[in-house]
Amino acid sequence: MEPTLARRPLTCAIVDDEPLALNVLSEYCAQVPFLTLKAQFQEALAAVEFLQDNPVDIVFLDIHMPRLTGLQLAQLLPAPAPRIIFTTAHAEYAAESYELPALDYLLKPIRFERFVQAAHRARAALALVGAGATTEPAENLNEALFIRQDNRLRRVVVDLFYAEGQKEYLMLYTAAGKLLTLQSFRSLEELLPLGRFVRIHKSYLISLRHLEFVERSRVQVHGTSLPIGETYREAFLEHLHYHGRV
């Protein structure tokens, strides 16, 4: 019997003009049991030539490269195209990259737990395609996060309403209750899907899916009133406009 996409190893390639980034990503691939690295390239054109004859499941693709950018390369890949996970040190490319059918966006320096998060997202997406599913399963409607508890990373699937900063900890308010994790807002934001969560205050990050209404100085998220920080207001409203929420 053929193994399902959810169980069989997923093939991948890495395209990055920085040798250090190639080394880091290849080491990360080696540590994820269901990933099989088929090739890595510093030159985008060589990668295109390889991928046209050697299809893979996932391409970890740098955006800022000479001659041919990752955004341009992604548009040259033959159908059926692999799942694209963009990698870059330039956060300003995030919005443009999501205009393409990208699965995820990893900001350098890439943390291992964030890489694993993206790999699991790719496996879930490919399993859906293999099963002929047209809608996401319940797990994918929520967020699969890696949170620090008891000096280790624990993968949990949660429907996250909002996160509250408590000194060096974060309290996550979820459908399953409250979770306390030794984690920074920055590390949490790196683990969350781009565009679905936004920082509204130095102490709060919210889910747009559970945002009920916005007032001048407050929002309501899943029945809870939270303040909007003055320094976060403009970026928050721009975020809502960009993603069609207002």
Rank of each mutant, 00 (worst) to 15 (best):
R7A: 12
R8W: 11
P9R: 09
L10G: 10
T11H: 14
C12Y: 12
C12F: 13
V15W: 01
D16I: 07
D17S: 08
E18C: 12
E18S: 13
P19R: 11
A21K: 03
L22C: 15
L22E: 07
L25H: 08
S26H: 10
E27A: 15
Y28E: 12
Y28V: 10
Y28K: 10
C29F: 12
A30T: 09
V32G: 04
L35W: 15
L37K: 04
A39R: 09
Q40C: 12
E43M: 01
A44V: 05
L45P: 02
V48P: 00
V48H: 03
E49A: 13
E49K: 06
L51A: 04
L51N: 05
D53H: 09
D57K: 10
V59Y: 02
F60V: 06
L61M: 07
L61S: 02
L61K: 00
D62H: 02
I63G: 07
H64Y: 05
H64L: 08
M65D: 06
P66G: 05
P66D: 04
R67F: 03
R67V: 09
L68C: 09
T69K: 01
T69P: 00
G70I: 02
L71K: 02
Q72R: 01
Q72Y: 00
Q72T: 04
Q72A: 11
Q72G: 05
A74I: 01
L76R: 05
L77G: 01
L77A: 01
P78W: 02
P78I: 02
P80F: 08
A81Q: 09
R83G: 03
T88Y: 02
A89C: 04
A89F: 05
A89N: 04
H90D: 09
H90R: 04
E92P: 03
Y93F: 11
Y93E: 00
Y93D: 00
Y93I: 00
Y93H: 07
A94M: 07
A95Q: 10
A95S: 05
E96C: 06
S97H: 00
S97I: 02
S97C: 10
P101Y: 11
L103R: 03
D104S: 06
Y105M: 07
L106Y: 07
K108M: 03
P109I: 08
I110L: 08
R111L: 13
R111Q: 15
E113A: 06
E113F: 07
E113V: 09
F115R: 06
Q117A: 12
Q117T: 15
A119R: 08
A119E: 03
H120V: 09
H120M: 11
R121W: 14
R121G: 09
R121P: 08
A122I: 12
A124V: 06
A124H: 14
A124E: 14
A125C: 13
A125G: 08
L126M: 10
A127K: 11
L128T: 14
A133K: 14
T134N: 14
T134A: 12
T135G: 08
E136Y: 15
E136A: 13
E136H: 13
P137H: 11
A144G: 09
F146Q: 13
F146E: 11
F146W: 15
R148P: 00
D150N: 15
R152D: 09
